[in-house]
């Protein structure tokens, strides 16, 4: 564990100024949002940024709003705590709110931002599977204007994204939700809180009459170099009624698709087993509907 070394912190007030700064200063810089990942990288991984560009003085990067078409835009600098407690998110995508509530601690969630967390591209990031299951898009600003890609495409590897050095992730956009949307996120970890996901499973189903699955999205965290979709498992569910037996089958398929590694937290074999069990549970939870209380949420994960 190291102490941070001297560095310059710039605080530009526009996206353009921020990108230009990076272009002028050259390689070795880093954007700063909440800092909860960046400071750890400096202290624990020996990462030495030459300079830091703090994005928090740029207006317009925070907040959650419903667009005219029913899609929801979450500004990149919106904190996890804001996502967790946002009435919009709680109402439309409760399991996304829950995935945000699973990140670190209250203190961390008051600093950590949804954009920072995505740009950091940790394979175990809790909100990533929930967002991917919702087919969220990433809005990116660069010196040559804006572009929008699917969030899934943003990730390239552990800690790596497809952003160019001067590009800034400005917002996450979640497409309009169908009235039959039901979802769940299960973080599987030994401790109740303050843990990294050993396995994270998010499911988003479009249910007809609360039964027939018109569309299924399953996204997994911590079991491959980037958060991933379990497409073969999704295919098993589409246009089917989600029964316990089918959920079991989809879980097994998702486990087969996952590509976990063994590390200090868990073996690859166990992670695969937990993908199987927790995918099944997330599917059944989604069909059963949302829990109301924290205790019950905990109980369901359990």
């Amino acid at each position: 564990m190291k102490r941070p070394e001297p560095l310059e912190i710039f605080q530009p007030t526009s996206l353009k100024a921020a990108s230009t700064l990076v272009k002028e200063q050259g390689p070795g810089g880093r954007f700063l949002a909440g800092g909860t990942d960046l400071v750890i990288a400096v202290k624990e991984k020996g990462y030495k940024p030459k300079y830091v560009v703090d994005l928090k003085r740029i207006p317009g990067l925070t907040g959650i709003r419903v667009e005219k078409d029913g899609s929801v835009t979450i500004g990149a600098l919106t904190t996890m705590h804001e996502v967790e407690t946002s009435p919009v998110v709680l109402n439309k995508y409760p399991f996304l709110a829950r995935s945000a509530a699973e990140v670190g601690s209250v203190q961390i969630r008051n600093r950590a931002t949804i954009g920072g967390n995505m740009a950091n591209a940790t394979p175990s990031a809790d909100v990533a599977p929930a967002l991917i299951a919702l087919e969220a898009k990433a809005k990116i600003s660069g010196l040559n204007g804006e572009r929008t890609i699917s969030l899934e495409e943003l990730f390239r590897g552990p800690g790596q994204t497809n952003l160019a050095p001067e590009e800034i992730l400005t917002a996450i956009v979640i497409p309009p939700a169908s009235s039959g949307l039901r979802g769940d996120y299960i973080k599987f970890s030994p401790r109740e809180m303050m843990d990294l996901a050993y396995v994270g499973v998010a499911v988003a189903l479009d249910l007809h009459d609360g039964k027939q699955c018109r569309k299924a999205r399953i996204a997994l965290g911590a079991v491959s170099p980037t958060p991933m979709r379990a497409r073969r498992a999704e295919a098993l569910l589409e246009n089917q009624t989600v029964t316990e037996e089918l959920a079991e089958k989809a879980g097994a398929e998702a486990a087969a698709e996952s590509k976990p590694i063994s590390d200090v937290r868990s073996s690859a074999d166990y992670r695969r087993e937990m993908v199987r069990v927790n995918t099944k549970r997330a599917l059944l939870n989604a069909v059963a509907g949302e829990p109301a209380f924290w205790v019950e949420r905990r109980d369901r994960r359990y």
């Binding site: 310059e8 912190i9 700063l32 909860t36 400071v39 830091v52 928090k56």
Partner: peptide
């Protein structure tokens, strides 16, 4: 933990420069 703009945060993860 300290309160930053009224919210509890970990002071070990915040640069003075911001």
């Amino acid at each position: 933990t300290v309160l930053l703009n009224g919210k509890p945060v970990n002071s070990c993860l915040i640069f003075s420069g911001e």
